[in-house]
Design a protein around this nucleic acid. Structure first.
Lengths: 218, 218, 218, 218
DNA sequence: AATGAATGAGCTTTCATTCAT
DNA sequence: TATGAATGAAAGCTCATTCAT
């Protein structure tokens, strides 16, 4: 029988996580201290420990939240019939969102999470969980594209899925380092790649004619 | 033990850096302690500090060394006349090297360096120095390819350069997480992308033969 | 244990300073360790650092407190009209206080402070602040005595002020070395000097009776 | 059978002590490091330890040397028949020497020695040895002056001796803090005090007539 | 439920001293 | 003899965590 409402508890937890994200973005997980978070929240050290059993749990909660957000973004995106169109929508969903300057704090924390995962099993399983599912979805998309003769038969679907992940991860990293980076130029380059890989009639009219790529020339 | 040779001094420094890389790969910069490095080297704490003024300097030296190694790999690679050929060689030089399982320690440290750069100006300038030059070289390569009509005119050269960087960074990251990752599949996917972007008659020969994932249905 | 009163905080700070004075008196500033103070207080190392940002700050706080105590003693003393009387009262105020055996700890610390001032600007400014003001007051007293024709005209007021400071400092030093030193003999000698310098009819009454060291041979 | 001459050994020892004095004057005994002395001498750490068994021995040697120098200065001074004249010569010998700006390094080290003596028995016995002998000589001088009726009978000879020591010590201290201090003003003040205590016919002609101090007026 | 003073293990770094060369 | 690289105990200080209030 709680003495305070659940929403009160939730908002405290949210407040702590927000402050922690700010602190972790600023100084990294290890260099940010509980006192930093205390200062950022305006709460007391004791209060923090009422909501999280340890600093590591805050880190894990943040990593998990990030994972959930990405999963939600992906869930929103539906593969659809046309591969090229699906990839273009994916670019919009995943990369377009990164263009938001307000996400800079998140990008910095994400890069920290990557490193943390390497020596923190809990974070690693969160990170891997957040990567493996998209990889499978993407690989399946590429396989479907090949079945539909919309993609080169020699394209390795699993490798290509990982390349897609890299294109996302690299942008996160480069933007974390350089917040002013030209995201649109990056997105355009990716779209050109998609076009090259899966040409469509309704696009590419400005391009010189090229032999259809999907015929097996070997 | 005084008046030792320069090579003796160099080998001690190397010994410390090697031990530090091992420790940092294992636990991250902040969680690895000087005592860990002491245990790993077999030297004393005092000896470490004869070669490096602080733990942070060891981190910086490692980041700088990594940067130098990548700059050397890039210097080895020459853009050459043909864009497609140049890109394929670049894939071999930059990604092929990552396939070496012995590099796993390095990959893990590299990911740590990325995070460290975010709150360590010294490391950041090393990292940025190691990124900006390749980006310019790649962008120029793409511009040249466009002048040669070997690449789509609408390809954004700067964005494309960053995508290349991402393809490298993402593989480093994913391999750090999953050492057994199929690098060849990744490389093949990238080569297929290169083919799609800059088609050649003589393409595909750099792709190693692998068991056909699907029969050629054409 | 939170939300404690200000007096609680003050008493903790006092406790730490007292312990530190004991430790510093025993082993000097540099050889006394934080662990010594921890042992002396019964607090933990962390608790010390809640009240003082560094060991040096404890030293500075102690030097400042000493300075404040002496300034208070001086403020209590008022120069008054008659030079000889004023000097005699000064002797009582400044030297008499030193006779207290409980002050031994303070004398030892004071000597440490003198040395510390030589390579610690913060301590030096405290020490200089505690010396310059008394020197000016004393010099003015001597000048007034000369205007009143109660002191030799050729007496250098500034030099004499410094001699007075020396008479104080030397007693602190010699007592620090030799706690059983005969302070009364010292004071008597100083009073005789004062008499010689500024003769009065009613002098000598402040001198405590002691067994005659030699019969009055006149 | 030494491999090198004694004078070579002596000069090395001298060189180390000079460097140590410089370092100790600069940073104090505890904060000056053996490495500081190594840098100041140009010798190696090992070489230092060939001439002194420990850092503490260097401190002790310096304290002892200082003591010997003061003893020599005192030995040079002979009490003589006339008290007033003897005291005036003493002022010249002991205080006049301090006026030398080159002695600043020594003054700073002396103040450090005072503090060191408080927790270093070896240094304490050197310091006490250097103080007790002069105190006895001075006390005897004052007693002689009283027998000669040249000094007030009520002057406490032991106390007065300590006051003389203070006048010396205080000047050392104040000059250590303030190298530009007006030593001559200080000396003049002391000489005026001596005159007041032991008036002479050949001096004081500018002074107003005062009742002879040596009569027992009580 | 909230506070924040207290804890104390453990961190990085220093430095007097040693001894193989 | 002289060197200076190596040692390692111990220093000052930090900070995640606890718990009396």
């Amino acid at each position: 029988m709680p003495r305070v409402s659940q929403s009160y508890l939730d908002s405290r937890r949210r407040q702590i996580m927000d402050a922690a994200i700010t602190c972790f973005a600023r100084r990294g997980f290890d260099q940010a201290t509980i006192q930093d978070i205390v200062a950022e929240t305006g709460l007391s050290a004791g209060a923090i420990y009422r909501y999280f059993p340890s600093k590591e749990d805050i880190v894990a909660a943040i990593a998990a939240e990030r994972h959930a957000a990405e999963a939600a973004a992906l869930a929103e995106w539906r593969a659809g019939d046309d591969v090229a169109e699906a990839l273009r929508r994916l670019v919009g969903v995943s990369l377009g969102r990164l263009a938001d300057p307000a996400e800079q704090r998140w990008r910095r924390v994400t890069v920290q999470v990557w490193g943390e995962a390497l020596h923190n099993d809990r974070v690693m399983s969160i990170v891997r969980g957040g990567l493996d599912e998209p990889l499978q979805i993407l690989a399946e998309l590429f396989r479907q594209g090949q079945r539909d003769r919309r993609l080169p038969q020699q394209l390795d679907p699993d490798g290509a899925a990982r390349v897609c992940a890299s294109i996302f991860q690299g942008l996160v990293l480069q933007q974390a380092w350089e917040p002013g980076l030209d995201v649109q130029a990056y997105i355009n380059a990716v779209l050109t790649l998609v076009d090259a890989l899966a040409p469509t009639a309704s696009r590419g009219d400005l391009r010189r004619t090229r032999p259809p790529r999907q015929a097996c020339r070997d």
